[in-house]
């Protein structure tokens, strides 16, 4: 777990790390979309004592890239470094209905299939500019994507965003963290805070 986390600090090393962890054969399998064998390989790696709950390794990769494109590393860590893709897999398994789980799985598979059809490569093996053009088409309900797909993608994105802004980094470094405000003032200049507070009940 620790090794995987270290290897996933940014996008490039994540993808590189994937090759290291899975080996060239598995990486090729991933490109060809054979999720099951990749998932098996993924789970058997000595570095990873975490188990995927719902997604295949291929779907997790697609999710990781979506997270990275949505919330990149800036002066603060992004979705990759905060393991939002792993969070989504776990959260879906424990806190969501089967229908919602299927919706997420289906749209991740559709993104993968669309990438293969458009670019001849799996989504995570594709150039970032092409990945972005594909996700923009999805968000705007264009080309091969239906309104149902766009709605499904909103769920994926909201889960990644939830994972990010409820992470320790998201709450304490990215947003204005004020665990013990000391009292309530009804009016302060927004500029004196400069960003949104991270919490309310329950967070």
């Amino acid at each position: 777990m620790k090794n995987y986390k270290a290897a996933s600090m940014d996008r490039r090393s994540l993808l590189k790390g994937l090759g290291l962890v899975l080996g060239a054969h598995a990486a090729n399998t991933l490109v060809s979309g054979n999720g099951l064998s990749v998932a098996m390989a993924f789970q058997q790696t000595p570095e990873g004592n975490r188990q995927l709950q719902l997604l295949t390794a291929s779907q997790l990769q697609t999710l990781a890239v979506i997270g990275d494109l949505s919330i990149p590393k800036t002066d603060t860590p992004g979705a990759l470094a905060t393991d939002c893709h792993w969070f989504v897999d776990n959260q879906l398994h424990h806190c969501f209905e089967p229908q919602e789980q299927e919706t997420v799985v289906a749209i991740l598979d559709k993104i993968q299939a669309a990438s293969v059809a458009r670019f001849g490569n799996g989504f995570s093996q594709t150039e970032p500019a092409r990945q972005l053009s594909l996700l923009n088409a999805l968000e705007q309900t264009q080309q091969e994507f239906s309104l149902t797909d766009t709605q499904a993608f909103k769920l994926v994105k909201s889960l990644l965003v939830f994972g990010y802004f409820t992470s320790e980094v998201g709450m304490t470094k990215v947003l204005a963290y004020d665990p013990v405000p000391g009292g309530f003032k009804g009016s302060v200049p927004y500029a004196s805070v400069g960003k949104a507070y991270s919490g309310g009940f329950p967070f």
Binding site: D178, P181, G182, G183, F184, K185, G186, S187, V188, P189, Y190, A191, S192, V193, Y197, G199, G200, F201
Partner: peptide
């Protein structure tokens, strides 16, 4: 009210 905010969670 874009310039307005508050402090604390009432």
């Amino acid at each position: 009210y874009e310039d307005e905010y508050y402090k604390g969670r009432r």
